[in-house]
């Protein structure tokens, strides 16, 4: 069997590709090869012998979905890929759109539908939560800086200024809010989300939905060490029935298909959970779930292949992940191969 995985970047803001592959290989049931799909010639997962057999450069979906598909079809013409496992936010719309065409080539995927991707979008999340009785910070969608002059009474400073795809800043007054609005609008475009600031501790859940409303697994964690870029470099599994129950409710309400990460904040004064974001793919810390007893990446592979699997029932609480970086030494020839020929071989 051949499984192609994206997101093999493993730098200070790591992609989920390498931990997903480790999970699949750790299952002890996987017989086959892992093929890396790279957007950059220096994605470390491509150079790791124990991670990928061969890797190929692919174009960004934003450069045109036709050329993106053509490149995948070309790689498939000789690799005969069974499953593609996309792991990055920015490529999911493309893979969702192409899932039928890929299936025609014999390539299975487990990705959310376009509708699911839209519903969980930052600009739609508040409406989704309101409809499903899930607490979420109040927000408005601002399409002009003028919207900041007339914030509704629900939005008192501090507020959170969020880009439509990435980035979030806490603004304590109008001056800060307008500065962040301008910065974010020029970087990510409009609209901008102006969100109520909820003070409290953040919690995360990694989960897997089967596309029919069942959560195959869900593991909750708390970050223990956060870098200056806001990335968790250590975290611990926790058990809170309420957190898991809300996560199951989200998967059921969306009929979520594939991996996901739910970001929550526990309001300091009331102890209530508020849903901040739904990330439509496994997080980079997904290997913690594997270590705690829920091999969600391998379960996702099984679902992609159409196998029926039973939901996980529990996991070990108090398991910690500690992330580290490690220098690989490779010959220039490897870099030359991926740069000139678009392929890097570890086999």
């Amino acid at each position: 069997m051949k499984v192609a995985v994206t997101g093999l970047n493993n730098v200070d803001s790591p992609g989920p590709g390498v931990p997903v592959i480790r999970g699949i290989k750790d299952s002890g049931k996987f017989e086959g090869e892992i093929i890396g799909l790279l957007y950059d010639a220096l994605e470390p997962g491509a150079y790791m012998r124990e991670v990928t057999s061969r890797s190929y450069l692919i174009p960004y979906p934003s450069s045109g979905i036709e050329s993106f598909f053509d490149r995948l079809a070309y790689i498939n013409s000789f690799e005969k890929i069974d499953v593609i496992f996309p792991t990055l936010d920015a490529e999911l719309f493309a893979f969702s759109k192409l899932s039928g065409k890929l299936n025609d080539l014999g390539i299975k995927t487990l990705v959310p539908t376009m509708e699911q991707l839209v519903l969980r979008g930052k600009d739609k999340l508040f409406d989704f939560c309101t409809k499903n009785n899930i607490n979420a910070p109040y927000n408005i969608i601002a399409s002009s800086i003028n919207d900041l002059y007339a914030l509704p009474k629900e939005l008192q400073y501090p507020v959170v200024i969020k880009g439509i795809f990435y980035d979030a800043y806490v603004a304590h007054n109008f001056q800060e809010a307008s500065a962040y609005f301008t910065k974010m609008a020029s970087k990510w475009g409009l609209p901008i989300i102006v969100q109520e600031f909820i003070s409290g501790e953040e919690y995360n859940v990694v989960a897997l939905g089967d596309g029919e409303g069942t959560a195959i697994g869900a593991v909750a964690s708390k970050k223990m060490y956060i870098t200056d870029k806001g990335k968790g470099w250590a975290g611990v599994t926790i058990m809170d029935e309420e957190l898991l129950s809300i996560s199951q409710k989200i998967i059921k309400a969306l009929n979520w298909r594939g991996g996901a990460e739910f970001e929550f904040v526990k309001k300091r004064d009331t102890g209530e959970y508020f849903l901040l974001e739904i990330n439509p793919r496994f997080p980079a810390w997904v290997y913690l779930a594997v270590g705690a007893g829920q091999n969600l990446p391998y379960a996702a592979l099984q679902l992609a292949l159409g196998e029926k699997i039973e939901p996980f029932e529990n996991y070990e609480v108090g398991k910690i992940f500690i992330r580290y970086s490690w220098d690989l030494i490779v010959d220039m020839k490897k870099f030359e191969d991926i740069t000139v020929n678009g392929v890097l071989r570890n086999d």
Partner: peptide, 18 residues
Amino acid sequence: DNLAVSESGFLFMANSGE
């Protein structure tokens, strides 16, 4: 009920990770 206490005096709150 969420508090685990070890012999060494290390406390772990299973529902908050503290």
